[in-house]
Amino acid sequence: MIQCMDQNGCLVQLRLGEDFIVEPEHVLVFCRFEQEWLVTNHCNRGLEFPGGKKERGESLEEAAFREVWEETGAILSQLKYCGFYVVNEIDHEFHKAIFFAEVIDVEQKEDYGETTGPVLVKQFPKTIKHDNRYSFIMKDDVLPATLSWLKREGLIT
């Protein structure tokens, strides 16, 4: 388990390669398209991987496919569960499942919900924690730890 504090001062506990104990209500999807990372530009937070809350009756996988489509217009070929993390806020905690996805295609849409749509990134800056273009979600240890895990698993080079 990896523990860190996020930009809001909340304790984050990351467990990669482990099954969840409490079923997550949120998903985060690390998307890869033609050797680049596919992120979305959230209107308030900035660049981040697509994700969000699972809807009633929806599986985590269905939520991941839907969130990626809604926020980027991407069509996924595969989805691999990577692990989960727990964010401990002052009055509650929430659990988020992490997936890795290969993207087949990105279709242009008229509406991307609360985002302005897809953005391709070759690599993330080493100074991402201080880069105002990126969401706070990308600035804790979840991003580098998950990227390292994906490399060890042979999912990325």
Rank of each mutant, 00 (worst) to 15 (best):
S77R: 14
R56V: 10
V22E: 15
L38H: 04
E62W: 03
Q35R: 14
D91A: 11
G17C: 09
N88G: 03
G52W: 03
G83R: 10
D105T: 03
T157L: 12
T72H: 04
G57F: 08
E36V: 05
L60T: 01
F84R: 05
Y85G: 00
L60P: 04
V103D: 00
E71A: 04
E93D: 14
C4L: 00
S148T: 10
L79V: 06
T40H: 09
H92S: 12
M5F: 14
Q35P: 01
V103N: 04
Y81R: 02
P50F: 01
P144G: 13
T40G: 11
W149R: 05
E23T: 12
G52M: 00
P125Y: 03
E67L: 12
C4M: 01
G52H: 00
K129T: 11
V86T: 15
G52R: 07
P50N: 07
T40K: 09
F49G: 06
Q13D: 11
P118E: 05
D141Q: 13
T40Q: 14
K53T: 14
C4I: 01
T146I: 05
V27R: 02
L47P: 12
L76N: 02
G73Y: 03
C43L: 13
G73W: 02
C10P: 02
I128S: 07
E18M: 10
E102R: 15
R32F: 12
Y112H: 02
E89W: 09
L79F: 06
K126A: 11
L155M: 09
L143Q: 04
P125H: 05
K129Y: 09
F33H: 15
G17N: 07
I137V: 14
E61S: 09
N132W: 07
A64R: 06
V119C: 08
H95R: 10
M5W: 12
S148Q: 11
L76S: 00
E36G: 06
E48Q: 15
R133M: 09
A74M: 04
L14H: 03
V68W: 00
Q3I: 08
V119H: 11
C43S: 13
E114L: 13
K122Y: 05
E55H: 09
Q7G: 10
Q3R: 09
V39S: 08
Q13L: 09
V142E: 05
L120D: 10
K129V: 10
A64V: 04
F30S: 01
E102S: 13
K129G: 02
S148W: 01
D141S: 07
F49V: 09
N88H: 14
D141C: 08
A64N: 08
I90Y: 14
E89K: 15
V106A: 04
E61G: 06
E70D: 03
L47K: 13
Q35M: 10
T116L: 08
L60K: 05
I90S: 14
V68G: 03
T127D: 15
T127S: 15
E89M: 13
F99V: 02
N132V: 09
K80W: 06
D19K: 07
C10D: 15
L76Q: 01
M5V: 12
R45Y: 15
K80T: 13
F33R: 05
I137N: 10
K109A: 00
T157C: 08
N41G: 05
K80L: 12
G113A: 05
L147R: 07
F49N: 05
G83W: 12
